[in-house]
Amino acid sequence: MTISDRVFDKIRKIIYEKTGLVIGIRDRDKLARFLSSRDIRPKSLEEEIEYDRKLLYDIIDVVTVNETFFFRHESQFEVLEGILKDLLKRVTERKIRIWSVGCSTGEEPYSIAITACRAHFGLYGSYDCESRFEIIANDISREALNKAKEAVYGGYSIRNLSREVLETFFQQEAPESYRVKDFVRRLVTFYLFSVTSDYDVKRYIGFNSCDCVFCRNVMIYFDDNSRRKALDNIYDALRSDGFLFLAPTETIRDISGDRFAIAITMGGIIYVVKR
C-alpha cells in the first residue's frame, strides 16, 4: 500500500498540530504498514481520524521514537540528588515538584523518583517521601504511557541498574522482569498531553510550579517553531529558581532569549531560570 503525497501531507499536518512533531519520509513507510495492518484505506484516513480520536493516538504511537532507559545520562541524577537534598531542607510548606517531559515508557520519571527517595533517605533515613515530592510525567504516546503505568521492566531498559538499586526499588516478578515498588510508583503521575499545548500545560502543570523540569531527547524531534512553544511552556511551568535538564548534546541557546542562565555542574550544563 502506498500513501499519496496529498494524504501524507494531511496526516503530517494533523500530527504536527497535535504534537509539534515533524514526521519524515521514513514515517511514511511505517504509516503505510500500519494502515494496511488495520485495513484502513489512506483515502478515507482523514475522515476516520475525525471520527475516531483513538486512531489519531494509534498513529502517534507509530511515529514517535520511545527509546529510553533507567538513569540515562547518569551523572545528571547525581546533580539532581544534590539539588533535591537542598530543596528538602528549604521547602517544607509544599511538595517539591518535578516534571518529566516526554517520559516515554516511564524510565525517566521513575529514575527521578528513585533519586528523590535516595535524597530523602540521605537526610532522614527513610525512603518514605510521598508527602514531600510530586513527579508529573507526560507523553503523547498512549502505548508508551500504558507501559509506564505498568512499571514492569527488563533487558535493555535496566542495564544501568546495580543489584542494590534493583533490590531496594524493584520487585522481581520473573527472571528478567522487575516491577517498580509501590512507594516509588506513588510519587509519579502520568498524563497524556503534548508539551507544545499551552492549554494542557496550564491545566496539568500550572504556572510557576515546578522546581525541576527534565526535557531530554524530546525537542530533537521538533522544528524550531515547536521547540519554541515547548520552551515557552516549560518556562511558564518553572518556578523562579527552577532548573531545566536537557540531554547533554541539546541546546536552547538559539531560542531561550534571556530567560535561562547556564549553570556548570558535574553532570554537564544545566539551565537555571533567570527572573
Binding site: 546533580v79 544534590g82 539539588i83 537542598d86 542562565a261 547556564i262 549553570a263 556548570i264 555542574t265 558535574m266 544545566i270 537555571v272 533567570k274
Partner: peptide, 12 residues
C-alpha cells in the same frame, strides 16, 4: 574535578 562541595555554579 574535585568535589568542592559546590553543586553548581551559575556562570552569570
Amino acid at each position: 574535578s574535585y568535589n568542592s562541595g559546590v553543586l553548581f555554579v551559575v556562570l552569570n
